[in-house]
């Protein structure tokens, strides 16, 4: 009798533990951090997690096919530099800049995928190599300088182009929802992409086959799945998501800042991994990833409002990640064991 009760408790903890923890945090901060429970603060949290969240959704797709993409951070910063370069130095329109960046993301994803499925380079190593390559590449055209209107070019001229208003709108415009100028565009983009990726992975046959590949590649091959194509697609999605993140970052900053986006990789990987624990999925999933990103955002915002110093942030993120991983792996293992015995 007690055993089944324990089992039920364990199941409950696995399924809802993380969500309850998050609700608990929200209640705690609402009570003890003045100003936490307001629309502005909620939007601020969303805005702070939008970029990492978008990248994390891309990582989720590669995790689903049992892969990994370390290059997302550098794809995002490359997109940042490319958009700045195309507008400021090549004097192109916002549309051209955005299309260029999206194309670059897809192309890098394609190369990653080909390296992994055709050249048989292990995923971590292929994308690590790509990460280095991109970090270097994005600095070559400007000789290591950041890009801004009025910068002097190697040929002695001054860069005449500017970030177009339309481009900056992507990063800075705020829609009126309830309050005036409340919801910024990146938050909308994040929510839309989260829903799209969630639907793709969870509801379509393509998503289902990608999960099948991640769970048992051989079996998936033997039922006639084109495993290689799906893997490449996963990396292309990851690349495109990362480039969207880079575009949004560029539009918010308004300049091609060489030093920004350093934390993007680790934060987004953490969000995707925390997502394993949400609803006891024990596997990568878009809903979990979005919640994972939000969880970190809420925790950091709450702590900041309670005057925790900024340098504790990474420690807190790490602790959350470790906790989530224990939730996922230890509890799932316990569950597997108790059902076997």
């Amino acid at each position: 009798m007690t055993k089944t009760r324990n089992d039920r408790l364990l199941n409950f903890a696995i399924r809802y533990g993380f969500l309850l923890l998050m609700i608990g945090l929200i209640i705690y901060f609402s009570l003890f951090a003045p100003g936490f429970a307001t629309p502005r603060s909620a939007v601020f949290i969303l805005q702070s997690v939008a970029l990492t969240g978008i990248l994390a959704l891309g990582v989720t797709c590669t995790l689903v096919v049992d892969g990994f993409d370390l290059s997302i951070g550098s794809v995002a910063t490359s997109a940042l530099m490319l958009s700045a370069y195309s507008m400021v130095i090549l004097e192109q329109s916002a549309l051209v800049a955005v299309l260029l960046c999206l194309f670059m993301g897809a192309f890098i994803g394609l190369i990653n995928g080909l390296l992994i499925v055709k050249c048989r380079v292990p995923d971590l190593l292929a994308t690590l190599g790509m990460m280095f390559l991109l970090i270097g590449l994005q600095r070559i055209p400007t000789q290591g300088n950041s890009i801004a209107t009025g910068m002097s070019l190697p040929d002695g001229n001054v860069a005449e182009g500017t970030f177009s208003a339309a481009f900056l709108w992507i990063g800075r415009h705020r829609f009126d929802v309830v309050l005036e100028r409340l919801v910024p565009v990146p938050v909308i983009v994040f929510i839309v992409l989260a829903v799209v990726i969630w639907a793709f992975l969870g509801l379509t046959r393509h998503g289902r086959l990608m999960y099948a590949i991640g769970s048992n590649e051989r079996a998936a091959t033997l039922v006639g799945t084109n495993v290689n194509r799906y893997k490449i697609v996963a990396y292309m999605i990851s690349g495109v998501m990362a480039s969207i993140g880079g575009i949004l970052l560029a539009a918010r900053l308004g300049r091609g800042d060489i030093a920004s986006g350093n934390n993007l990789l680790l934060d987004s990987v953490a969000a995707a991994l925390i997502g394993f624990a949400v609803l006891g999925a024990s596997r990568p999933n878009a809903f979990g990833t979005a919640i994972g990103a939000l969880f970190v955002g809420i925790l950091l915002q709450g702590l900041t409002m309670m005057n925790a110093p900024y340098y504790t942030q990474d420690f807190v993120k790490g602790a959350v990640l470790v906790l989530a991983l224990v939730f996922t792996f230890y509890l799932a293992w316990r569950k597997g064991n108790s059902s076997e015995a």
Binding site: R208, Y211, A212, N216, A219, A220, L222, N226
Partner: peptide, 20 residues
Amino acid sequence: DDGVIPDLDVANNLLLDRLT
């Protein structure tokens, strides 16, 4: 183990190749 996808449910496993 070459025949089944452990992480999917029985229904998905039975009809998996339809999806391809």
